[in-house]
Protein backbone atom coordinates (compact mmCIF):
# COMPACT_ATOMS: atom_id res chain seq x y z
CA UNK A 1 0.00 0.00 0.00
CA UNK A 2 1.18 3.52 -0.84
CA UNK A 3 -0.11 6.63 0.93
CA UNK A 4 0.79 10.28 0.35
CA UNK A 5 -0.40 12.89 2.87
CA UNK A 6 -0.15 16.47 1.65
CA UNK A 7 3.24 15.86 0.10
CA UNK A 8 5.19 18.77 -1.32
CA UNK A 9 8.62 18.49 -2.89
CA UNK A 10 10.60 21.63 -3.54
CA UNK A 11 14.07 21.33 -5.06
CA UNK A 12 16.94 23.45 -3.73
CA UNK A 13 16.81 25.64 -6.85
CA UNK A 14 13.25 26.58 -5.94
CA UNK A 15 11.59 24.43 -8.55
CA UNK A 16 8.45 22.71 -7.33
CA UNK A 17 8.28 18.99 -8.09
CA UNK A 18 5.03 18.21 -6.28
CA UNK A 19 2.61 20.38 -4.37
CA UNK A 20 0.23 19.18 -1.65
CA UNK A 21 -0.37 15.74 -3.12
CA UNK A 22 -2.57 13.30 -1.21
CA UNK A 23 -3.65 9.85 -2.38
CA UNK A 24 -3.80 6.21 -1.32
CA UNK A 25 -3.10 3.15 -3.45
CA UNK A 26 -4.30 -0.09 -1.82
CA UNK A 27 -2.38 -3.35 -2.10
CA UNK A 28 -2.50 -5.11 -5.51
CA UNK A 29 -4.05 -2.16 -7.32
CA UNK A 30 -2.95 -1.19 -10.84
CA UNK A 31 -2.70 2.57 -11.17
CA UNK A 32 -1.64 4.77 -14.06
CA UNK A 33 0.23 7.98 -13.31
CA UNK A 34 -0.26 10.49 -16.09
CA UNK A 35 0.68 14.06 -16.82
CA UNK A 36 2.69 16.16 -19.21
CA UNK A 37 6.49 16.30 -19.06
CA UNK A 38 7.51 18.17 -15.91
CA UNK A 39 4.18 17.51 -14.21
CA UNK A 40 5.92 15.68 -11.36
CA UNK A 41 5.53 12.01 -12.32
CA UNK A 42 9.21 11.09 -11.87
CA UNK A 43 9.41 13.10 -8.64
CA UNK A 44 6.45 11.19 -7.24
CA UNK A 45 8.00 7.82 -8.15
CA UNK A 46 11.38 8.81 -6.67
CA UNK A 47 9.65 9.75 -3.44
CA UNK A 48 8.16 6.23 -3.23
CA UNK A 49 11.54 4.45 -3.33
CA UNK A 50 13.12 7.26 -1.30
CA UNK A 51 15.32 8.51 -4.07
CA UNK A 52 14.09 11.85 -2.72
CA UNK A 53 12.67 13.03 0.58
CA UNK A 54 9.55 15.22 0.67
CA UNK A 55 9.91 18.83 1.74
CA UNK A 56 6.55 18.69 3.49
CA UNK A 57 4.11 15.85 4.17
CA UNK A 58 4.25 12.17 4.97
CA UNK A 59 4.60 9.10 2.78
CA UNK A 60 3.74 5.58 3.91
CA UNK A 61 4.87 2.58 1.88
CA UNK A 62 3.63 -0.79 3.11
CA UNK A 63 2.86 0.86 6.43
CA UNK A 64 6.32 2.37 6.89
CA UNK A 65 6.78 6.11 7.17
CA UNK A 66 9.60 6.84 4.73
CA UNK A 67 10.79 9.92 6.61
CA UNK A 68 11.50 7.83 9.70
CA UNK A 69 13.58 5.20 7.89
CA UNK A 70 17.26 5.85 8.56
CA UNK A 71 19.41 6.16 5.47
CA UNK A 72 21.19 2.87 6.14
CA UNK A 73 17.82 1.07 6.10
CA UNK A 74 16.75 2.49 2.74
CA UNK A 75 18.27 -0.45 0.78
CA UNK A 76 15.96 -2.83 2.65
CA UNK A 77 12.95 -0.73 1.62
CA UNK A 78 14.12 -0.78 -1.98
CA UNK A 79 14.30 -4.56 -1.99
CA UNK A 80 10.51 -4.56 -1.65
CA UNK A 81 10.01 -2.16 -4.55
CA UNK A 82 10.74 -3.07 -8.17
CA UNK A 83 11.61 -0.18 -10.48
CA UNK A 84 11.55 0.02 -14.27
CA UNK A 85 12.60 3.03 -16.34
CA UNK A 86 12.15 4.21 -19.89
CA UNK A 87 15.86 3.90 -20.66
CA UNK A 88 16.11 0.30 -19.34
CA UNK A 89 19.27 1.03 -17.30
CA UNK A 90 20.93 -2.27 -18.11
CA UNK A 91 24.69 -2.60 -17.69
CA UNK A 92 26.17 -3.24 -21.11
CA UNK A 93 29.20 -5.23 -19.96
CA UNK A 94 27.06 -7.60 -17.89
CA UNK A 95 25.09 -10.51 -19.32
CA UNK A 96 21.33 -10.74 -18.95
CA UNK A 97 21.88 -13.17 -16.08
CA UNK A 98 24.18 -10.72 -14.29
CA UNK A 99 21.85 -7.79 -14.92
CA UNK A 100 18.89 -9.67 -13.51
CA UNK A 101 20.66 -11.22 -10.56
CA UNK A 102 22.10 -8.13 -8.84
CA UNK A 103 19.91 -8.53 -5.79
CA UNK A 104 20.51 -12.29 -5.36
CA UNK A 105 24.22 -11.54 -5.55
CA UNK A 106 23.89 -8.83 -2.91
CA UNK A 107 22.07 -11.33 -0.72
CA UNK A 108 24.90 -13.84 -1.09
CA UNK A 109 23.20 -16.37 -3.33
CA UNK A 110 25.47 -18.98 -4.93
CA UNK A 111 25.99 -18.85 -8.71
CA UNK A 112 23.57 -21.76 -9.10
CA UNK A 113 20.92 -20.06 -6.98
CA UNK A 114 21.43 -16.81 -8.88
CA UNK A 115 20.90 -18.56 -12.17
CA UNK A 116 17.80 -20.29 -10.86
CA UNK A 117 16.07 -17.12 -9.66
CA UNK A 118 17.13 -15.22 -12.78
CA UNK A 119 15.67 -17.97 -14.95
CA UNK A 120 12.42 -17.79 -13.00
CA UNK A 121 12.21 -14.01 -13.42
CA UNK A 122 13.15 -14.19 -17.10
CA UNK A 123 10.56 -16.93 -17.60
CA UNK A 124 7.91 -14.49 -16.36
CA UNK A 125 8.89 -12.06 -19.12
CA UNK A 126 9.29 -14.88 -21.68
CA UNK A 127 13.02 -14.32 -22.17
CA UNK A 128 14.61 -17.30 -20.49
CA UNK A 129 16.50 -18.38 -23.60
CA UNK A 130 18.51 -15.11 -23.75
CA UNK A 131 19.97 -15.44 -20.26
CA UNK A 132 23.62 -15.53 -21.37
CA UNK A 133 23.40 -12.75 -23.95
CA UNK A 134 24.70 -9.23 -23.53
CA UNK A 135 22.06 -6.47 -23.59
CA UNK A 136 23.44 -5.06 -26.86
CA UNK A 137 22.38 -8.26 -28.60
CA UNK A 138 18.75 -7.76 -27.57
CA UNK A 139 16.03 -5.65 -29.16
CA UNK A 140 14.62 -2.66 -27.29
CA UNK A 141 11.54 -4.64 -26.27
CA UNK A 142 13.71 -7.49 -25.02
CA UNK A 143 15.92 -5.09 -23.07
CA UNK A 144 12.88 -3.64 -21.36
CA UNK A 145 11.71 -7.16 -20.52
CA UNK A 146 15.10 -7.84 -18.94
CA UNK A 147 14.68 -4.64 -16.89
CA UNK A 148 11.27 -5.87 -15.76
CA UNK A 149 12.75 -9.27 -14.87
CA UNK A 150 15.38 -7.47 -12.79
CA UNK A 151 12.62 -5.59 -10.98
CA UNK A 152 10.70 -8.82 -10.39
CA UNK A 153 13.57 -10.96 -9.17
CA UNK A 154 13.01 -9.89 -5.57
CA UNK A 155 9.26 -10.65 -5.83
CA UNK A 156 8.47 -7.04 -4.87
CA UNK A 157 5.29 -5.91 -3.19
CA UNK A 158 5.25 -2.80 -5.35
CA UNK A 159 6.37 -2.33 -8.95
CA UNK A 160 6.80 1.22 -10.18
CA UNK A 161 7.56 2.05 -13.77
CA UNK A 162 8.56 5.43 -15.20
CA UNK A 163 7.50 5.64 -18.85
CA UNK A 164 8.46 2.00 -19.48
CA UNK A 165 7.07 2.06 -23.01
CA UNK A 166 8.45 5.48 -23.93
CA UNK A 167 11.15 4.02 -26.20
CA UNK A 168 9.02 1.30 -27.75
CA UNK A 169 6.67 1.13 -30.73
CA UNK A 170 2.91 0.60 -30.11
CA UNK A 171 3.02 -3.19 -30.53
CA UNK A 172 5.93 -3.59 -28.15
CA UNK A 173 4.26 -1.15 -25.75
CA UNK A 174 1.17 -3.36 -25.62
CA UNK A 175 3.36 -6.42 -25.08
CA UNK A 176 5.22 -4.77 -22.19
CA UNK A 177 1.98 -3.47 -20.73
CA UNK A 178 0.65 -7.03 -20.86
CA UNK A 179 3.59 -8.10 -18.70
CA UNK A 180 2.74 -5.46 -16.10
CA UNK A 181 -0.84 -6.76 -16.07
CA UNK A 182 0.42 -10.30 -15.46
CA UNK A 183 2.61 -9.08 -12.59
CA UNK A 184 -0.33 -7.19 -11.10
CA UNK A 185 -2.61 -10.24 -11.41
CA UNK A 186 -0.05 -12.15 -9.35
CA UNK A 187 -0.70 -9.67 -6.50
CA UNK A 188 1.92 -6.94 -6.95
CA UNK A 189 0.85 -3.30 -6.68
CA UNK A 190 1.74 -1.58 -9.96
CA UNK A 191 2.16 2.16 -10.45
CA UNK A 192 2.91 2.96 -14.06
CA UNK A 193 3.80 6.49 -15.16
CA UNK A 194 3.03 7.18 -18.80
CA UNK A 195 1.89 9.89 -21.14
CA UNK A 196 0.59 7.32 -23.63
CA UNK A 197 -3.08 8.28 -23.57
CA UNK A 198 -4.09 5.43 -25.90
CA UNK A 199 -2.58 2.86 -23.57
CA UNK A 200 -4.40 4.32 -20.58
CA UNK A 201 -7.73 4.53 -22.39
CA UNK A 202 -7.35 1.02 -23.76
CA UNK A 203 -6.59 -0.43 -20.34
CA UNK A 204 -9.05 1.62 -18.31
CA UNK A 205 -8.79 1.65 -14.52
CA UNK A 206 -7.55 4.13 -11.97
CA UNK A 207 -5.53 7.08 -13.14
CA UNK A 208 -3.64 9.60 -11.01
CA UNK A 209 -3.29 12.69 -13.16
CA UNK A 210 -0.67 15.31 -12.31
CA UNK A 211 -0.60 18.84 -13.66
CA UNK A 212 2.03 21.37 -12.60
CA UNK A 213 3.01 19.24 -9.61
CA UNK A 214 -0.55 19.03 -8.28
CA UNK A 215 -2.81 16.01 -8.37
CA UNK A 216 -5.49 17.03 -10.82
CA UNK A 217 -7.58 13.87 -10.56
CA UNK A 218 -7.67 10.34 -9.21
CA UNK A 219 -6.44 11.17 -5.71
CA UNK A 220 -9.69 10.60 -3.85
CA UNK A 221 -10.44 7.31 -5.54
CA UNK A 222 -9.74 4.38 -3.28
CA UNK A 223 -9.95 0.89 -4.70
CA UNK A 224 -10.41 2.01 -8.30
CA UNK A 225 -12.50 0.05 -10.74
CA UNK A 226 -12.18 -1.76 -13.97
CA UNK A 227 -8.42 -2.06 -13.97
CA UNK A 228 -6.90 -5.52 -13.94
CA UNK A 229 -6.22 -6.99 -10.54
CA UNK A 230 -7.83 -4.09 -8.74
CA UNK A 231 -7.64 -3.85 -4.98
CA UNK A 232 -7.63 -6.45 -2.31
Amino acid sequence: MIQFFHVTKRYPNGQIGLEDVTFRIPRSQFVFLTGASGAGKSTLLKLIYRGLLPTVGQILVNGRNLASIPRRKVPYLRRTIGTVFQEFRLIGRRTVLENVSYLPRILGASPRQRRQVAEEALDRVHLKDRIDDLPEHLSAGEQQRVAIARALVSRPEILIADEPTGNLDPDLSREIFGLFREVNEAGTTVLLATHDRHLVEEAGGRVLHLAGGRLASGGDEVGGGGAPGVDS
Partner: peptide, 10 residues
Protein backbone atom coordinates in the same frame (compact mmCIF):
# COMPACT_ATOMS: atom_id res chain seq x y z
CA UNK B 1 22.81 3.66 -9.58
CA UNK B 2 21.39 0.24 -10.42
CA UNK B 3 22.92 -1.33 -7.34
CA UNK B 4 21.42 1.38 -5.19
CA UNK B 5 18.07 0.97 -6.88
CA UNK B 6 17.86 -2.77 -6.30
CA UNK B 7 18.72 -2.35 -2.62
CA UNK B 8 22.48 -2.73 -2.30
CA UNK B 9 23.91 -1.32 0.92
CA UNK B 10 26.64 1.33 0.86
Amino acid sequence: ATLRLVGATE
